[in-house]
Simulated scan of single mutants.
Amino acid sequence: FEQPDIAAPGVSILAADRNSYVFKSGTSMACPHVSAVTALLKSVHPGWSPTMIKSAIVTTASVTDRFGMPIHAEAVPRKLADPFDFGGGHIDPERAVDPGLVYDVDAREYNKFFNCTLGYLDGCESYYLNLNLPSIAVPDLKDKVVLQRTVTNVGPAEATYHLVVEGPAGIDVFVEPSVINFTRSSSKSAKFMVRFTARQRVQGGYTFGSLTWSDGGTHSVRIPIAVRTVIQDFVADTS
């Protein structure tokens, strides 16, 4: 899965330094902002798991600046920021407190993920794809890949969410179902399937998109997508 998860204020931040205050920049300034938002969310929703809090932060982040323009990355040459620059986007605490839907993960699932990374388990590729993270990364799409995610309703008991997909360039994206209905008598969780199909046979770089569940009103639950098409393994890309 991709990193980072989120972007936060980190440039010219007024910070305490010994017996004074100074302006500092960097991840050491951004991290306290996210930690504070996490603590506030936990105070409002004490029953939420760490992954529910993380999901709320990621899925409600903004991908535009305060003027409504796309965020640019600090790169040469200048380029639009992508999920590898800011994850879900720039943190938005007010929206994070009421995300509508969250992507929750049982803590025991991370034990299996850890064992996979250490090589203790076989057949981990499918597990990597299906870990219920608030993001989707497919690093080696040769033809077709199918994965699934589960969303949990933490908003109004009765709600209908419609899907909005921004597909990565050169990739066909199919999601089933494309509409999720929650009622007072239904389960608070719903599974959906995502299929990626490569339209072009190239050894390429990553292309990006997003998958958003919207109730047409208050809630817009967005996760980033990163997909890389390949022809064969162990081929280095050059530019």
Rank of each mutant, 00 (worst) to 15 (best):
D5Y: 10
I223S: 00
G100F: 02
H33W: 08
V154Y: 00
I53V: 15
C31G: 05
R199G: 04
Y110D: 06
V179Y: 09
L101S: 00
F114C: 09
A73G: 08
D172A: 13
I225L: 13
R66D: 14
D92V: 07
V22R: 15
V34T: 14
V11E: 14
T229E: 06
E166S: 08
Q148A: 13
A75W: 05
E158S: 11
V230F: 00
I6Q: 10
D140E: 15
I53T: 02
I180H: 07
L41A: 00
H219Q: 01
R95A: 11
A190C: 04
H72E: 11
V63A: 03
Q148F: 13
Y127K: 10
N115Q: 14
E125D: 11
G87E: 07
D233R: 10
P168R: 03
F114I: 13
G209S: 03
F192I: 06
H72I: 06
V105K: 12
G47R: 14
S35R: 04
R199P: 01
F84I: 06
G119E: 06
P177C: 10
I136H: 11
P156M: 13
G216F: 03
V165W: 01
F84M: 09
L129F: 08
R66I: 14
N19W: 08
P139A: 10
V11S: 05
T183Q: 05
G204C: 03
P134W: 04
R108I: 14
P77W: 12
G88V: 02
P70Y: 03
M52W: 04
A61V: 04
K54M: 14
Q148M: 12
E2Q: 12
T38I: 12
S55D: 04
Q232M: 08
S62D: 15
A226V: 02
V97W: 01
S12F: 10
Q200S: 11
I171P: 02
R228W: 06
P46K: 09
V227N: 02
N111D: 15
P9W: 07
M52H: 04
V194E: 08
F67W: 11
H219R: 01
V154D: 02
